[in-house]
Write a protein that binds this DNA or RNA. Structure first.
Lengths: 207, 207, 207, 207
DNA sequence: CATGAATGAGCTTTCATTCAT
DNA sequence: CATGAATGAAAGCTCATTCAT
């Protein structure tokens, strides 16, 4: 996730809104969701806490925006990872690795994006769901293409298979982040094993 | 484990400790761990916050107890599900279904068991880790047995494969609980699809 | 420094900070440092506890401020007392009396200034120590001057003698404030006796 | 202060009251007055907190008892120090040193004995005052004897002089305990200087 | 567009004490 | 004589949010 170092504010006056988001994201990635208090964001940005409310209705709204941006960033990462790779199996493997890498490299961000229960914060807009879905669809498209080309053959139709694939990748990331996987296994090796296993479900064995 | 709604206390003398745990669990599923406060537990139970400290050293100790209980319950559920099923594929499928069912039916346990970051609570004792591992090992043993019997053939050795299998099941549960899966897919159908796909990785197609 | 009774706030806009300090001082003398809580200060002032944190980083910071103010006030009192008195013995006696008077009249300051264990609050900045030392040095300078002029002759070099002198005055104040001196003795008479005795150590008998 | 190591209880059943006092004193000396909570005493003794209330009306009563015992211990230490020394000056010096030593060696105890404001705990019985006075009187007697023998000549009558002497020693102890004396001076050297200076007030220069 | 001042609600934990047994 | 269970009050502190300017 390309993370612009939070500018100390005011260079241009580049829309306080933008600056707030950058600092918030930075705090999130660096110190976790708990450290994401309005006050702390404000003091990091160098403005008053009150000012944040001029740009975001409340903390939930700010969080929603962060999530949306995260989804976009993830989408960009996935798209970039798949680009130029034509072979379906390799393309799928590349998508999987990129997804997991994003999660492991942006732990706190990932958590906010995928582990915050909607009931526990103000209901957030359908738009966010759609954005999240785009990421899954990327998997689905690759699966469908692969299947069409006869490269894949799994027990489920592509749009279901891609959802399942996504949940399994998410599980890997999520347990890694919660440090719940056996330390003797955790690491790149496990990621590769997971990718292998995921692809094996489609009758494919990647290198 | 379907939960009786938290009774208004004192029924028998049923050890306040037990009552506290039950209410804590219910609050947990309703509002999440971050919102779980000693005060709220107390007021839900109908006792003073101080009283909780008579039964638990602190909030972490209470949490640890919940985790341990959850792990035991899960273990019992898995063991019961696998019992009497000899065919490896069916046995594995039964384990998978039982795991997911446990997660979906005990969201309150599931969250503390697998989604809490160790950094956010006092490191919990090694014993708990061992308990958690027992559950994963159950998968591993079935996989190893199936592989020995020639029923399975996956790209990874059993102890790795079982960890990966677990993470994928966890992903399913986790995203379901966070209501992040496409509503058009979510439900038993997706669970079955996930089981199919997971087993397909071992060259098996369950009924 | 005779204190106006804490006014019910807001008179002018008189900076809440100032008002907080005044109330804190009064609570201090009334109930002691241990009983001095942010909440009590707040409710005495008539503001919320949170508001105090807008003006002081924490309780220690507030305490440090009180100490510093006290040290300054004491210094002013001592300086004023010694001013214009040239005869070393009289000057020294004046300093002693001023010191004791300050202690007895400002018990609220005195306690934080000299009776708080550093372990019980955050180490306060070196600056405060220097301030405290200024007060003792005032005694030292007078002693040195008197010795140079042949007016004094004690068993210890001036910088030691002044420290000892200070401790003895402090003992008098401290026990008075704790109401530990025999009621039949306590009072101005004892103060005078103490001054006499302190000066006698330097071979001087004041009027 | 001879401090019997707090017996782990129950040897004989040596009056729980006695055992409680020993443990309380021990906690006091070892961990300070703040650590002297009923609960902590109880858990140190190995009995229930409630049990303490069978032997002491409340915490103040326990504290009072502790103070009284402290006064007795101090008295014993002073008496022992003076015993066998006939020369008034040496005897007085010995008393002073013993007093200061007691204070420095039992900081927390000393504090409770002499720095607790009577207004801040339940009024304690006149008996305690009398006990404290005995200690001062020890100084007074020595002073009177020395004066009668022509060894001393101070500006104040003995009963006043002894009170003043005491306050000055107390000041030394008190500021030491609060770590308010210049570190470059603090220590045995300062104690000796204080003794010298105190005695100089009586026209005496001890070795 | 921005802020300083203010607040009520909330947090975990410890305390001295009481009451029924 | 002794206890386990329970409690109300209090501590220091942080939070998201609002309001007048």
């Amino acid at each position: 996730m390309p993370d612009a170092p939070p500018a100390r504010r005011a260079e241009t006056d580049a829309s306080l809104r933008r600056v707030i988001l950058d600092h918030a994201r930075h705090l999130l990635v660096a110190h976790g969701y708990d450290a994401l208090s309005m006050r702390k964001i404000a003091s990091s940005v160098g403005c008053s806490a009150t000012s944040i409310y001029l740009h975001f209705e409340n903390k939930d709204a700010l969080t929603h925006t962060l999530i949306s941006e995260g989804m976009d960033t993830l989408f960009a990462a996935l798209a970039a990872a798949g680009e130029g790779i034509d072979a379906p199996a390799e393309r799928l493997a590349a998508l999987c690795r990129a997804y997991v890498r994003f999660g492991l490299e942006n732990p706190e961000y990932y958590e906010v994006m995928f582990q915050l229960h909607p009931e526990r914060m103000a209901r957030y807009p359908a738009e966010d769901y759609r954005r999240a879905r785009r990421n899954v669809e990327l998997f689905g498209e690759t699966l469908a293409a692969g299947e069409a080309a006869g490269a894949f053959s799994g027990p489920n139709p592509p749009e279901v298979a891609s959802a399942v694939l996504w949940t399994s990748l998410h599980g890997l990331v999520s347990l890694h982040l919660a440090r719940r996987v056996d330390v003797r296994l955790a690491g790149d090796e496990l990621v590769e094993a997971a990718v292998r296993q995921a692809l094996a479900a489609f009758g494919v064995s990647p290198p």
